[in-house]
Simulated assay, not measured.
Amino acid sequence: MRHFPPDPAPDAEALLLARYAGGDAAAARLLAVQLAPRLFAHAVRVLGDGHEAEDVTQEALLRLWKIAPDWRAGEAKVSTWCYRVVANLCTDRLRKRRSVPLEDVAEPEDPRPDAAQQLQQRARVDALQAALQSLPDRQRQAVVLRHIEGLANPEIAQILDIGVEAVESLTARGKRGLAAVLAGQKEALGYET
């Protein structure tokens, strides 16, 4: 790959932009006269629509004026930067043309349960909590640690300072106690079995 020496001639467009940043309105007009026709022509060729090309050209020049005070001469040519902005703006407009209108997009399903489901879930939680409170303390602790917290029997045995067999017995008795308390509420809680 050949490397070419940097262009020793200063970028006339960058000089005009620097003058504009310094408050010279005539420099901005001159720069716009030089850039706008080329940017417009490029936008028309890409978009195929003169009105949209005018909007894109104006937006590109507005962006140029906004960055003028921060422009670092020598990093990029002003015209190259403007062409890049025009290309991006054209791409955005072309994407919008191909996109489906919002009215035609189906409403996404809400993953949250509806109000009736939320009420039923709340009733189930309340019924379970009441049923748990009816159990003796050790059974309640064993059932909660095993079936709600998901701990293994050896872990529960360490927590409650009892043997694994005792944990199994406590959880079995606790489950039977819960079933007996909740048996009459199946239909009200939305359970079939």
Rank of each mutant, 00 (worst) to 15 (best):
H51M: 02
L30N: 09
E165D: 15
H51N: 10
L119P: 10
A14R: 04
Q118H: 13
E168S: 14
E192W: 14
R63T: 08
V143M: 06
D11E: 15
I67N: 05
E103F: 11
A123I: 03
L128K: 04
Q121L: 13
P111Q: 10
E165I: 11
G174L: 02
E54P: 00
F40L: 08
G22H: 04
A166M: 13
L61G: 07
Q58G: 06
L178A: 08
H42G: 11
R146H: 05
P101R: 02
R138T: 10
Q185W: 04
R84I: 01
Q139Y: 02
V167Y: 07
D104L: 15
R173S: 03
E103Y: 09
L145N: 05
V46I: 11
R29M: 01
K66R: 15
A172W: 14
V46T: 14
T91Q: 06
D126M: 01
L35T: 07
A172V: 13
P5S: 14
I67K: 13
G48M: 04
A9W: 07
A131C: 07
E75V: 14
D161F: 08
W81L: 05
L132S: 00
D137F: 03
L189M: 06
V164I: 13
R112H: 07
K186Y: 07
D161W: 08
E107R: 12
